[in-house]
């Protein structure tokens, strides 16, 4: 119980530290703070030679519930209702048609470059970020 608590505290310190360092770095490197922070953390993993066990234990849990943290930003769509209504046709075309066209293109290129493989059994245990 205490070990788990300390793992969470340690992970939060590392993630907030890397993010804030990334924010400082974005003054010099013109990339979002999150990308700079990600590279800082990757560098730490590379130097350390592996992912520290406490991060491995906690980060997948956070990534699996990342959706909750998007909600405050998504609420802003309420403030754009009128604009969404005004541009609905452009948005439908831009989101639906181009997504389907992109999928078809990527599928064709992937299939051409990578040989088809036999089906494998499903294992829905992944905690993917949203």
């Amino acid at each position: 119980m205490i070990k788990r608590f300390l793992q969470h505290i340690g992970t939060l310190i590392v993630l907030i530290g890397a993010y804030e360092l990334g924010d400082v770095a974005s003054v010099v490197i013109p990339l979002p703070a999150t990308i700079n922070g990600l590279f800082i953390l990757l560098l730490v993993f590379a130097v350390y030679g592996k992912v520290p066990a406490f991060l491995n234990a906690v980060i997948p849990l956070y990534l699996g519930h990342m959706s909750m943290f998007f909600v405050p930003a998504i609420m802003a769509v309420w403030l754009f209702q009128q604009a969404v209504y005004d541009h609905w046709l452009a948005l439908v075309l831009a989101l639906v048609l181009t997504t389907i066209a992109s999928m078809a293109l990527v599928m064709w290129v992937s299939n051409t470059l990578l040989k088809p493989s036999p089906k494998t059994n499903s294992d829905p245990t992944d905690q993917s970020p949203q």
């Binding site: 990600l38 990534l63 930003a73």
Partner: peptide
Amino acid sequence: LGPLTVGLALPV
């Protein structure tokens, strides 16, 4: 959300 995004370093 910012620090959690940095956590994507793990899957990467």
